[in-house]
């Protein structure tokens, strides 16, 4: 029973990631693409968690932490590039 539920959730996660990839390619504006990238990151984290439940292992938990950190930093960098046009400033003026 639980195996079937996990498999179904994996299929649904992959469908979600494909929809987000379509949004990255088509996306009319830049914030759409950034949101779709963030969504792919969250779905990848959930997928890895489900896979580690299926395989009954604890080896992937560090992967989850690293993916969370990297998608956090990536989202901050993208939104800062959209909002200010520069990612790392030399001297902030305010």
């Amino acid at each position: 029973m639980i195996e079937t539920m996990l498999m179904v959730s994996l299929v649904l996660f992959s469908i979600t990631i494909s929809i987000a990839i379509i949004r990255i390619i088509l996306g009319p504006s830049m914030p759409d693409r950034v949101l779709a990238l963030d969504m792919i990151g969250v779905n990848l984290i959930a997928t890895i968690a489900v896979v580690s439940i299926i395989l009954k292992t604890k080896a992937f938990l560090e992967v989850i932490l690293i993916l969370g950190i990297l998608s956090f930093i990536g989202t901050i960098a993208f939104s800062k590039a959209i909002e200010r046009g520069v990612i790392v400033e030399r001297k902030r003026d305010g």
Binding site: I66, L70, F72, I73, I76, V88, R90, K91, R92
Partner: peptide
């Protein structure tokens, strides 16, 4: 990979604050 994670912390500091 320990060094990579440490450097990502420094990159986050540089993103939020400025270089100076």
């Amino acid at each position: 990979i320990g060094g990579l994670v440490l450097s990502s912390a420094f990159v986050l500091l540089y993103l939020v604050n400025d270089i100076e």
